[in-house]
Design a protein around this nucleic acid. Structure first.
Lengths: 187, 187
DNA sequence: GGTAAAATTTTACAAATGATAAAAATTATC
DNA sequence: GATAATTTTTATCATTTGTAAAATTTTACC
C-alpha cells in the first residue's frame, strides 16, 4: 500500500502539505517476530503498515493479552507515548515479515504547529482511531463472545487465515478453549 | 466549572484563538432525566459539562447498557455523529440537573479550517478521549469485575455517591446482582 | 518423508456470572 | 410520617467460562 493512499485515506491533503508530510516518512522492513514498539517505554516513532500484519499485546500475569491487530494501511503507535509522552502499555509484534512507513513523532508535532492542513490531518487520525476503539468497546460491552467471533468472521475474514487462534481468542476476550468450543458449536 | 478552564485543560490556547472558540459557546441547562443526545440520530451539537453528571447508554435487547459517565469538565458528544456524521450509538441522559456549555459542531469545524491553534486543540481533544477509551478497554480486557470495581472506587469515589448501582454494574459489564455479590464479598 | 515442535481441539471438573424471584432497604410523594 | 415506588441485597439454580491435562492436528525443519 502506498503512503500517499494511506495519508489521503485519513484526510485528503493539498499537494504541498502532503509533500511536507511525506518528507518525514522513511521506509523500513523487519522480519516476523520483531518487536516494533515496546511496552513500558516512551516510543518516539509511529508507523503505517505498507505490507504485513501485526498485533499489540500486554503481558498480564502469566499470559499475554492481544488487544489489537494491524493490517495494511493501519497506523501503528503507542497511544500513551504519542499522546501523553508516557510509557506505553503494549508490545507490538510483527506476525509476518513487514514493510512499514516510519515517522518520528517529533517531526510530526512540528508539522502540526506549522501547517493547518496537517494539524487537521492529525486530528482526523486521532478521531478515526477513537471511533474504531469505541466500536470495539461497545461490541465488547454488548455482545457475547459467540457474537463477537461471528462479527470478526464477517468483518475480517482474512485475519483468521493470517493469525493463530490463540491470539484471536485473547483479542475476543476469551480463552483459547472457549474459542474452540464456540467454533465447534457453529460448525 | 468555567469554559475557559475546560478549554485550556485540553490545550492552552493563545488569547485570540480562545476568544474565537468561546464565541461559539452558549450556556444551556436541563433537568435530571433529560435526554441530551439521542441514539440513532445525527447530532449536530456537542457539550461540556459545567455542573452535573450524565451517562451514555445503549438499548440492547431488553436492557440498557451504560458505557460512560460524564462529570464536570468532561466533553459530551456522539463520536459517531461528530467524526463520521453518522447516527450515534448512544442516548445521553442527565443523571442530575445540569448546566452545560453547548457548541454546534458545524461552527467548530469551520474554526478547525481557519485557526491552526483550534485545529490542534481539536486534535488534542480527540487524542485525550482516545486515551481514556483505550484505558477502559484495556482495563476491561485484563481485569476481573472485582478488580474493576475496586479500581472505580479508587479513581472515582464520588461517582458511587451520585450514581445508582444498577448503572455502575452495567458500566462495569456485569449485572446488578453480580455487583451486589462483589460488594458483599469486599465488606 | 519423518521427527519434533507448536497449535488446536477435546474432555472433565471448578469457579464465576447470569437469571429469576423474593426480601430488605432506601427514596419519593402526598 | 405513612404509603407507594424504586433500588439494593439475598438466595437458588442454570449457564457460561475458566483451568488443567490429554489427544489430535498442523506446521516447521532436517
Amino acid at each position: 500500500m502506498l503512503i500517499e493512499e494511506i495519508i489521503n485515506g485519513i484526510l485528503p491533503l493539498p499537494p504541498l502539505a502532503r509533500q511536507r508530510l511525506e518528507a518525514c516518512v522513511t521506509e523500513v522492513a523487519y522480519a516476523k517476530g520483531h518487536i516494533l514498539l515496546q511496552a513500558n517505554k516512551v516510543e518516539r516513532a509511529m508507523y503505517f503498515i505498507k505490507k504485513g500484519i501485526v498485533r499489540a499485546y500486554s503481558e498480564y500475569g502469566d499470559n499475554e493479552i492481544t488487544f489489537w491487530f494491524g493490517k495494511e494501511g493501519d497506523p501503528v503507535l503507542s497511544m500513551k507515548s504519542y499522546v501523553a509522552k508516557d510509557r506505553g502499555y503494549e508490545d507490538i509484534e510483527l506476525l509476518e515479515d513487514c514493510a512499514l512507513y516510519e515517522i518520528q513523532t517529533s517531526q510530526l508535532e512540528q508539522l502540526f504547529g506549522e501547517d493547518i492542513h496537517i494539524a487537521n490531518w492529525g486530528r482526523r487520525l486521532a478521531e478515526k482511531e477513537l471511533m474504531k476503539t469505541e466500536e470495539r468497546f461497545i461490541s465488547r460491552q454488548c455482545r457475547t463472545a459467540t457474537e463477537r467471533y461471528k462479527e470478526l468472521i464477517q468483518e475480517s475474514p482474512h485475519l483468521l487465515q493470517r493469525v493463530q487462534l490463540g491470539h484471536i481468542a485473547s483479542y475476543l476476550g476469551i480463552t483459547q478453549v472457549s474459542l474452540s468450543r464456540i467454533r465447534a458449536e457453529i460448525r
